[in-house]
Design a protein around this nucleic acid. Structure first.
Lengths: 172, 172
DNA sequence: TGTACATCAGTGAACGCGCGTTCACTGATGTAC
DNA sequence: TGTACATCAGTGAACGCGCGTTCACTGATGTAC
């Protein structure tokens, strides 16, 4: 409940303005209730971030299901990721603001790294000399596309095309 | 003076913790002095961001001087950018935290866009179908490399190689 | 079925703190005569 | 050269505010007998 409220607030405000007051106001509970469920604000932010990824992960995993490692699988997962970002509440806060919040910067970095590790085999298949490093950069690009699409409020086909172009000349 | 102090503080702390108190403490002046030079904190942050870019821009421009548009010129500018980021104080705050600060988010976005516009001709030369979109993604990748190098405290050749790999098969 | 007690999510007033901002004042420097 | 005044960067104590956090309390629900 409180997590849903947090993501809802994040959809129209920066993460830095997501005060405990704002969360309980959105959720319609007393301020003390917040501390029944979370030790402190930092604890809450970590949970919020985890929630966001737990919502997204299955969709992305499903998109790559049954496809052999390689650019096709990566691209399929990418589309699922971008569409998921566009439709999830609080995406901007989780992708952008979260990296700057000291309370969760570590958690975000770890999460990005897991993403990169998942992407690396596909890039290895495509001939990258250092798949993990390439994967980190690709994840950064994908996040940038997600943010730009979110700013526009819709899919940006030319951006997605530019992303696939940078992925490799054998792209879509 | 106050701007130098701000960048110095940013080097070991997040931008969100860069309070007026922290700035004047680092600069060794009274709190009131701050408001002699800046209208408010937001005004200061904009100036801080501008300063960072004004310091960096000439170096990058010089690196591309006299080279014909194309990937060679882009790569030369990229190296200058990455080395500049590594040696400038407050890089992490300006590259990462600044995008999340409501007070300067607009200024940062505009600045990134100027970068992209400068990069676009090189990518057009290299055959990108939508040079500006490709440029935006490339700028995002370059910033990511800068951040990862900064976290490591040194150049990361494999990362730079991965960046050039993603730039195109004709890369270095 | 009825009574006594334990549990625990939820409450909201109260707190201390650090923040951004203000303002009457200072004191060095420059200008006019 | 000496005196009177204007300018203005710099000062620091004081303010109001919003924040994260605490805590004594409530009241519904479950359990024991």
């Amino acid at each position: 409940v409180l997590l849903d409220a947090g993501l809802a607030v994040c959809d129209h405000a920066a993460l830095s303005t997501l005060s405990v007051d704002a969360v309980v106001a959105e959720a319609g509970v007393a301020k003390g209730t917040f501390y029944v469920h979370f030790r402190d604000r930092a604890d809450y932010l970590v949970a919020l971030h985890r929630r966001f990824h737990d919502d997204m992960a299955p969709t992305i995993a499903a998109a790559g299901e049954g496809i052999a490692p390689g650019l096709d699988r990566l691209w399929s997962a990418t589309i699922a990721y971008l569409d998921g970002c566009l439709s999830s509440p609080g995406t901007k806060a989780m992708l952008l603001d979260a990296r700057a919040e000291p309370a969760i910067a570590t958690a975000v970095a770890a999460s990005n790294d897991r993403f990169a590790r998942r992407v690396a085999p596909d890039l290895a298949e495509a001939g990258a000399q250092n798949p993990l490093d390439s994967a980190r950069l690709y994840v950064a690009m994908a996040a940038e596309v997600a943010l730009l699409e979110l700013a526009a409020g819709r899919r940006r086909p030319t951006l997605r095309h530019a992303l696939s172009e940078l992925l490799g000349s054998t792209a879509h």
